[in-house]
Each structure stands twice: as structure tokens, then as C-alpha cells.
Amino acid sequence: MLKSLSATAALCALIIPVGIAEAMPMGGSYTGRVESQTPQPIGPDQIRIQQKATGVNTGPGTPLDGATVQWTETATLTNGQGPVEGLITFTTPAGSTSSTYRGTVTTDAQGRVTATGTYRDKSSTGEFKGVKGSGTFSLAYVSRTDFTGEWKGDVKLPAQKASKR
């Protein structure tokens, strides 16, 4: 029996890839500016807004520090409140990673607009190929077109390939 367990352990050691990817916390903050916006009235006190924005991510010590950020989203608002969903892409010289997101937009009595929600990685290129993760985000508009925000979550970096030496 002991011999069988040792053989099984040895077989498992051969099957497990080198550098198993472990989820690790990661986050950053960003600034953004709405570049285009298409509002469409859809009913009394209701509007659907499609917009695109660009910005920069800050995350010292992370692979996405200094990344260019692009958002494409749709918000459906009733009296300034409602769901938002879209795609966010972080691009660096080493590659890019895109995530889908969903959340809620809220406008307070003073007209301040905020949003919170969740994201999940969808695709990636270059050195980020194979990245998986999910987490939360929040943002607040500081003017009609400019906003700041934060994101945090758990990211699983791709496993490293074994050397052929």
C-alpha cells in the first residue's frame, strides 16, 4: 500500500504544472474622461446613455501601473439611477487585459454621480495572456466629463512555463 501511495505521489508531481498560479490581491486607482456620449430617451424620466471614456491606471508595484484605460459602457437610468454595464481594457507595452463589468449608477440630490459594481476578466494579450480575476470597482464624477475611481480584486497570473534545459 505504501508503495502504491508513493507511486501516486510521484505521478501527481509529474502532472502538476510548474508555477501553479495562485490568486493574489491586486488593485489600483484610475482617472478617466468621457470622450463620447450618446444619450437616448426611452421613456418618462428614463434615458439610455452609451459612452466611451479613456484614462490612466495607477497601481505602484503592479503590472498595470501606468496602463492606458478604455471604457465602453451603457447605462440605463431612471431619474438618474440605474444599471451600468460595459467593458474596461487596460493596455501596457507588455499587453492588455479586458474585463466585463456590471454595476449601479447613483445620482444624489446635489447632482453628484457615483457608480459601484463588480468586474470579471474576459480576455488578455501578451504577457497578460491567461490572466483570470474578478473584483469590485467604485467611481465618482468630479465634473460632467471627468471621474476618478478604484478597483480591487483577486488576480490569478498565468502559470510559468517549465524550462526545456
Score class of each variant (00 low, 15 high):
Asn79Trp: 03
Thr97Pro: 09
Lys122Gln: 08
Gly82Ala: 00
Thr31Val: 05
Thr74Pro: 05
Gly135Val: 07
Thr100Leu: 07
Thr136Cys: 11
Ser4Gln: 15
Thr106Pro: 12
Val142Pro: 12
Thr54Ala: 15
Trp151Ser: 01
Pro83Ala: 01
Ala75Trp: 03
Asp121Trp: 07
Gly82Cys: 02
Thr54Arg: 09
Thr89Phe: 15
Ser98Val: 13
Ala10Met: 15
Leu64His: 05
Glu150Met: 07
Glu73Met: 00
Gly126Gln: 06
Pro17Leu: 02
Ala21Asp: 02
Ala75Thr: 04
Gly149Val: 00
Leu14Tyr: 14
Thr62Phe: 14
Pro158Ala: 06
Ser99Asn: 09
Ser138Asp: 11
Thr72Cys: 07
Gly133Ser: 13
Thr78Val: 04
Ser134Pro: 09
Asp121Cys: 02
Thr54Asp: 11
Thr72Leu: 15
Val131Ser: 02
Pro17Ser: 04
Thr104Ser: 07
Val34Trp: 02
Thr54Gly: 06
Arg33Glu: 10
Lys52Asn: 12
Thr72Pro: 10
Lys3Ser: 13
Gly130Lys: 09
Ser96Gly: 04
Asp146Val: 11
Ile16Trp: 12
Pro17Thr: 01
Pro44Tyr: 10
Glu150Ser: 14
Lys122Gly: 12
Asn57Tyr: 08
Gln110Gly: 03
Ser98Glu: 13
Leu2Met: 04
Asp108Ala: 05
Arg120Thr: 02
Glu22Cys: 15
Ala94His: 07
Glu127His: 03
Leu5Ile: 15
Pro39Thr: 01
Lys156Tyr: 06
Lys161Ala: 12
Pro63Thr: 04
Thr58Tyr: 10
Ser143Phe: 03
Ala115His: 05
Ile47Asn: 14
Gly82Phe: 01
Thr100His: 04
Thr58Arg: 13
Pro60Leu: 06
Leu64Asn: 02
Leu139Gly: 00
Gly28Leu: 05
Ala109Thr: 13
Lys52Gln: 08
Lys161Val: 09
Met1Ile: 14
Phe137Glu: 00
Thr148Val: 11
Ala13Val: 06
Gly82Pro: 08
Met26Asn: 13
Gly95Arg: 07
Lys122Phe: 12
Phe128Leu: 03
Val105Ala: 02
Asp146Phe: 15
Gly19Phe: 03
Ala75Tyr: 03
Ile47Arg: 08
Asp65Lys: 15
Val69His: 04
Pro25Lys: 14
Gln51Thr: 11
Leu157Ala: 04
Ala53Asp: 11
Ala109Lys: 13
Met1Tyr: 15
Gln70Thr: 06
Ile49Trp: 07
Thr89Ala: 10
Leu64Tyr: 11
